[in-house]
């Protein structure tokens, strides 16, 4: 059974960063790989996926989703986060130009707002970021941009502050987050691990007094288990860790899933997420804040 270090070696040796279903490198898995390696102190290894993201960056500063698909560009958010975390860890400004261009693009683009509707529970007038151009703002891309921009020292920008308001607004009344809707035609929707974990990561460290945040943490603690799929387990652990908590058996469960071949071999995307979630909590906080590791 491979040790954590051996899993890290595998991630460090990767030359392609893929989802399970993709044959080509994609931006999101590369960004998570860079963040996971930095979080485990493997900073030089993290430079490789970060450099690949820099090569993928387009003239306007955005980073498309994969080497063949320049659109959509929500992955720009995670590239900013990876570059900023790496530069902070190395105490250098290697990616500063990439970050600046990506930030300009990010602040110039936004999801579409819509007039309030009694049929929809969330505040449709709040502006965050969308998955694809000219569509509504959604929870996960908004959280990714909040994380990226805050790590790159833009946490006070009005767009980031509105993004945080949007994320809080999208939490479900009893805690947890759906993919983005809260109540539709009077019916509250289902919470899910992944969006809840991502939302909580983005809200960590903010001075917020909303009971749904605590309820969301409770939801993750209540619902997480060792049999969960890699991404959901990882984001659940990351969401709790971001708020300086720890799921008691987290590392044991993460290692179990790292070694579990039932679902077939892990893609770099899942490997990176599991390893990031298994990183020491203090390092996760430093990465989220953009501080030196």
């Amino acid at each position: 059974m491979p040790s954590l270090a051996e899993h890290l070696d595998r991630l460090a040796a990767a030359t392609h960063w893929t989802y399970r279903a993709s044959a080509q490198s994609c931006s999101e898995p590369a960004a998570w790989a860079a963040l996971a390696l930095v979080a485990h102190g493997r900073v030089d290894d993290g430079a490789r996926p970060a450099k690949w993201l820099a090569e993928l960056q387009q003239r306007d500063g955005s980073v498309g989703i994969s080497e063949s698909e320049s659109e959509p560009r929500w992955s720009t958010s995670l590239a900013i986060w990876a570059w900023a975390a790496l530069d902070a860890a190395r105490r250098e400004r290697r990616f500063v130009g990439n970050i600046e261009r990506a930030v300009v693009w990010s602040l110039a683009h936004h999801g579409e707002a819509a007039p309030r509707s009694p049929q929809i529970g969330h505040n449709t007038e709040l502006v965050g970021w969308s998955w694809a151009a000219e569509t509504h703002s959604w929870l996960e891309p908004t959280a990714f941009f909040v994380l990226g921009l805050r790590t790159a020292s833009h946490g006070d920008h009005p767009r980031v502050r509105e993004g945080i308001r949007l994320i809080v607004d999208r939490l479900l009344p009893d805690g947890g987050a759906n993919y983005g809707n809260t109540i539709v035609l009077g019916q509250p929707l289902l919470p899910h691990m992944q969006p809840t974990g991502i939302a909580l990561m983005a809200l960590a460290g903010e001075q917020l007094d909303d009971p749904r945040i605590e309820k969301s943490l409770d939801y993750l603690h209540r619902s997480v288990n060792s049999k969960m799929a890699p991404a959901s387990l990882s984001f659940a652990c990351l969401g709790v860790s971001a708020h300086r908590g720890r799921i008691a058996a987290a590392n044991e469960w993460l290692l179990t899933v790292l070694d579990d071949a039932t679902r077939g071999p892990l893609a770099e995307y899942e490997l990176a997420l599991l390893l990031l979630a298994a990183a020491p909590v203090e390092r996760l906080h430093q990465i989220t804040a953009g501080a030196a590791v």
Partner: peptide, 14 residues
């Protein structure tokens, strides 16, 4: 694919 159209596939809704 969600990776092109989003989660939900909001491009289609619009």
């Amino acid at each position: 694919p969600g990776i092109k159209y989003g989660w939900p596939k909001n491009v289609l809704h619009h």
